[in-house]
Design a protein around this nucleic acid. Structure first.
Length: 424
RNA sequence: GUGGACGUAGCUCAGCUGGUAGAGCCCCGGAUUGUGAUUCCGGCCGUCGCGGGUUCGAAUCCCGUCGUCCACCCCA
């Protein structure tokens, strides 16, 4: 007996019982993306480590302490992607897709961050990701947000709140940064330890500190929105106008900054009060400098990511039941002849009715046992083929969910009958 | 990374002040021979997270470790 191998910390299995919720989310996302003309994009899970350092930022927590990085055979420096945008931006450049000048894509898959796990926060987690390249105006910012709003709405999620803010251009942000440093330095003694450490490196992050005393200080700090350059201010105002016109409720949150360095101008977050500290379920923003920073032709970009585990938790918390796959038919087989003919009959039916969901009883069992299995499978009907029926060339059909009386049907007509019963 | 709570059958949990484990659900079988979700009867399942220590004896006490969860942190 060997010792059981445990899963790694912070990773988890999605069990068959949880699959309906995941598929509901993924199917809904595909449909919504299609409705807005976004195309699917698939990019690698591993990339060269410098990609993330250059895009997300050397001094962000993600890059500083949360990446799964390794050196492969003493040569390539590799990192498991902690987020999707960097890889997509790289792929867009690598494949020369910017020649098409405009691109709307989405992507879905696992991400990796070496954090201390908690419910809704895992070391391997999954994101649905949406990106648009080559659009400068605020209309695409609005569409991005409207798309995410529609997706959340289509999922039946109502306990979410939209927060938006603008970080301005890099120049405006740099100027604001200086003002912030000046302000906080003057009050350094009142800052908590974390914030003091960030003062020189990333003072914007002090703004969303949860430390009570620091928050009081933040209340009196210069406002980012007031320091914006004229163009960014107009861009933001136009975005708000689009959202107002679309009837989407939002809250301007002046202290909303993001933990990734590449954001410019618009940033936004969907949050919920149902998931404890893991309140952000979807977040994103504009990153007009990123493509150039990675060596591509300067091209504006914007995108967001949604945490699939968090959405699934939220579906559960809000009591949204994902539709479960149920077979139309469970084929009960009794006797040697019936067992011999059962699989072939099932294949014939599947040929005749491509949409048919049919489970064949495997491994024998008494009538009682087989009916128990039929019931547990969730099937609407049981088809009964015993030696008696086989000899007479008929199959019995029993309604497992309703009141319809049991009927018999000649084998050659069974496909036709099922087609009528299930509308196939 | 910091602080804290918890860790007993597949699941939810009980097990008082230390005396070598129990319930419900699930699952399997049966209640006369070919018909499911009810009811009744029976059955399976645990090295009490792992390792060490204290003790005549530990699921129960102590230490370590791993994991989960909560808050911080961070973020999706």
């Amino acid at each position: 007996m060997s010792k059981i191998i445990e899963p790694l910390r912070g990773v988890h299995d999605v069990l068959p019982a949880q699959i309906p919720a995941w598929q509901f989310l993924e199917r809904t996302a595909r449909d919504v993306f299609a409705a807005y003309g976004y195309e699917e994009f698939r990019v690698p899970i591993i990339e060269q480590t410098p990609l993330f350092k250059r895009s997300i930022g050397d001094f962000t927590d993600i890059v500083e302490k949360e990446m799964f990085s390794f050196v492969d055979r003493g040569e390539d420096h590799i990192t498991l992607r902690p987020e999707a945008t960097a890889g997509i931006a790289r792929a867009v450049i690598s494949n020369g897709l910017l020649r098409e000048s405009r691109l709307k894509v989405w992507c879905m898959g696992p991400m990796f961050r070496r954090e201390r796990p908690q419910a809704g926060r895992y070391r391997q987690f999954h994101q649905i990701d949406c990106e648009a390249f080559g659009f400068e105006g605020p209309d695409v910012d609005a569409e991005m947000i409207l798309l995410s709003a529609r997706l959340l709405r289509s999922l039946g999620l109502t306990r979410v709140k939209l927060l938006i803010n603008s970080l301005g251009t890099p120049a405006a942000r740099a100027a604001y940064r200086e003002r912030l440093i000046e302000y906080f330095t003057a009050h350094e003694a009142a800052l908590d330890e974390d914030s003091r450490r960030r003062l020189q490196g990333n003072p914007l992050r002090i703004l969303d500190s949860k430390h009570p005393q620091t928050q009081r200080l933040v209340a009196g700090a210069p406002q980012l929105l007031e320091s914006l350059d004229a163009e960014s201010r107009a861009h933001f105002a136009a975005l708000c106008g689009h959202l107002d016109a679309a009837g989407i409720a939002y809250h301007v949150e002046p202290h909303l900054v993001r933990g990734l360095d590449y954001y410019t101008r618009t940033v936004f977050e969907w949050t919920t009060d149902l998931l404890g500290a893991q309140s952000t379920v979807c977040a994103g923003g504009r990153y007009d400098g990123l493509i150039a920073q990675l060596g591509g032709t300067p091209t504006p970009g914007i995108g967001w990511a949604m945490g699939q585990e968090r959405i699934v938790l939220l579906l559960e918390a809000q009591g949204v039941a994902a539709p479960r796959e149920r077979p139309h038919l469970y084929l009960v087989l009794a006797g040697e002849r019936a067992e011999r003919e059962g699989l072939r009959l099932a294949e014939t039916l599947r040929d005749a009715l491509p949409g048919l969901k049919l489970q064949v009883n495997l491994g024998g069992g008494s009538f009682k046992t087989q009916f128990k299995r039929a019931d547990r499978s969730g099937a609407a009907y049981a088809a009964i083929l015993g030696d008696e029926e086989a000899a007479r060339g008929v199959v019995a059909l029993k309604d497992l969910r309703g009141e319809a009386p049991q009927e018999e049907c000649p084998v050659e007509r069974i496909g036709e009958r099922l087609g009528v019963l299930f509308g196939l």
